[in-house]
């Protein structure tokens, strides 16, 4: 996993800035890094394609037309057609929609579990903490893709089961990070003060501890999306998830395997789509981390 040791830690002078200069710093910072800009562009394209796919003037991604099979790219079919005569461009664009839905669902499920376990563990401490972190240590011994593969296999093939499996295994490392932050925040003076004036546990967690978690969570989540997309497309590629004719990139790759010799394009297109989507989120995540985590600064700037 991407660790924060990737960038050199240089001591950055802590600026006593108010709200507005900091926000300006955020935006100029974002637009300064060419990598981040490229990431933003790729992610925005993915979002647009995914959101607008059903309303764009595209062929039906599932419409089979055997006379049109394996056509090369042309003005009518921008990226050609596949072995069943379906328009490849339309299937790639609709695949963006599947990818976004899958990534969002997995992220939501895994972050919910990670937040619940991490906050419970860090806030309560004691036996709760020991037991929950014991489970986390245990689960860390299982490589996540392999555990997800086993869970998805047990649940049976299907995109929903793959998402469930991925969400169920992805939270483990994050729970520990959130626990650490919660533990640190619980000992701060403002939390002790809040408790002294009689604030309840829920109020302390949501008003005083949650804001500390928000920044790291945004960074973790944005760096995570790339991994999630790779993992889910991998499970779909192995045939455990989305089944044909669903226009999902991993499943499309699997579907095109027997046309390796005659139409390598059918394998390279979904592969390139996955690559660009993952690259986009990784670049954006790196940029966000550099901005939101004042301890790291890009070497070379």
């Amino acid at each position: 996993m991407a660790s924060d040791a990737e960038h050199t830690r240089e001591r950055v002078p802590v600026l006593a800035v108010g709200r507005s200069p900091r926000r300006r710093l955020l935006w100029t910072g974002l637009l300064w890094e060419p990598g981040t800009v490229l990431g933003l562009f790729l992610v925005a394209s993915l979002l647009l394609a995914g959101l607008l796919a059903p309303w764009l003037p595209l062929d039906d991604p599932a419409m089979i037309s055997l006379p049109d099979r394996l056509l090369p790219p042309s003005s009518e079919h921008l990226l050609g057609t596949d072995h069943l005569g379906r328009d490849s461009f339309s299937r790639i664009v609709h695949g963006a929609r599947m990818t976004l839905v899958a990534a969002a669902a997995t992220l939501a499920l895994s972050m919910t579990i990670a937040l619940a376990v991490g906050i419970l563990s860090g806030y309560n401490g004691g036996w709760t903490d020991t037991a929950l972190m014991g489970v986390v240590d245990l689960l860390l011994a299982f490589p996540s893709l392999i555990l997800a593969l086993a869970v998805a296999g047990a649940l049976g093939p299907g995109l929903f089961n793959v998402l469930l499996a991925a969400g169920a295994v992805w939270w483990v490392g994050h729970a520990r990070i959130i626990r650490g932050i919660t533990l640190g925040a619980r000992q701060t003076e403002y939390v002790i003060a809040a408790r002294a004036v009689g604030a309840g546990n829920m109020r302390i967690i949501f008003r005083h501890i949650a804001p500390n978690i928000l920044g790291p969570i945004v960074v973790i989540a944005s760096l995570d999306v790339g991994w999630i997309i790779l993992g889910i497309a991998g499970l779909n590629f192995l045939g455990l998830g989305a089944q044909p004719p669903t226009p999902e990139w991993g499943a499309m790759l699997n579907d095109a395997r027997q046309h390796l010799q005659t139409a390598p394009r059918l394998l390279l297109l979904p592969g390139a789509a996955i690559f660009l989507a993952v690259l986009g989120f990784n670049l954006l995540g790196d940029g966000l981390r550099d901005l939101l985590d004042p301890r790291t600064r890009r070497p070379g700037n």
Partner: peptide, 22 residues
């Protein structure tokens, strides 16, 4: 490093097969 982290191993595998084997 950037590209390596984003290339799916399955796409890379087929790319290698297409180029070096086919």
């Amino acid at each position: 490093a950037l590209v390596g982290a984003a290339v799916p191993s399955y796409a890379l595998a087929y790319g290698l097969i297409i180029l070096f084997a086919v």
